[in-house]
Amino acid sequence: MSALRKSSPLAVTGKYLALAFYLTFALFPLYWLAKIAVTPDKLIFSEGTAMVPSSFTFENFRTVLIATDFLSYFKNSLIVSLGTAAITTCVAAAAGYAFSRFDFRGKRLVIALMLITQMFPLLMIIAPIYKIVAAVGLLNSLTSLIIVYTAFNVPFATFLMQSFFDGIPKDLEEAGMIDGCTRFEALRKIILPLTLPGLGATLGFIFTAAWSELLFALMLINSNDTMTFPVGLLTFVSKFSVDWGQMMAAGVLALVPSCLFFIFIQRYLVQGLTSGAVKG
């Protein structure tokens, strides 16, 4: 019995070692990013692989923020990502609710079509997409990116939201409707508060996907004014040299919104909000 309750110190050590190994592996690139960002330019190549640089500087950050178009890229990315995340989540929540709660003609067909859109490699459809966007005159606009990202993310987000709605017992809405709600009131007052973790997860997922998307942004945008951040990063690569310090500094800054976003939504990601509703 005691062996079941208390694991041996060896097992505990092993568990922590495995965790430590995983964390090192996952976080080392981030550390390296930050390290290069604060290393003075002249030391980047001379000190090469030293774990800690002999001197620090914030010069790279200053240059990136003041001397480059970084802030403009940053703003564009923020508009595109927030726009995409907001629109996708709204559409996906509505569609997911419908898939979860209603039976209607053509439901299976719509689901099948949505799955099919997820089957093609992006490279296959990038040319047609370019043609369409060019034809409607949206090249070099942030709107085009929001539309394309939304279109690509809605199916997955819909299935994600559907599974969250499926997890909320139907009885709750029915109880609400008997208590005097219309279906919409029941959705707003009972289901919506319980779906917040799902909405948070979907928002976060779509935001990150849009924030780091490169391929479409590269294809559809080539004016400096409307470049998003991943495309903008490439401007640090010139024909003859790569400005590593500034590039890494820009990378570190680009992590900030993602981190803030996740700190903001993490309390909604915590599961267990629905426990106690029905006897499990």
Binding site: L172, I178, C181, S275, A277, V278
Partner: peptide
């Protein structure tokens, strides 16, 4: 007549309490 206008109360097998 929709459920809300029937003036009936229902106790569900699963209780269906609002968890929040």
């Amino acid at each position: 007549v929709p459920p809300r206008d029937r003036d009936m109360a229902m106790v569900f097998q699963s209780y269906a309490l609002y968890p929040h």
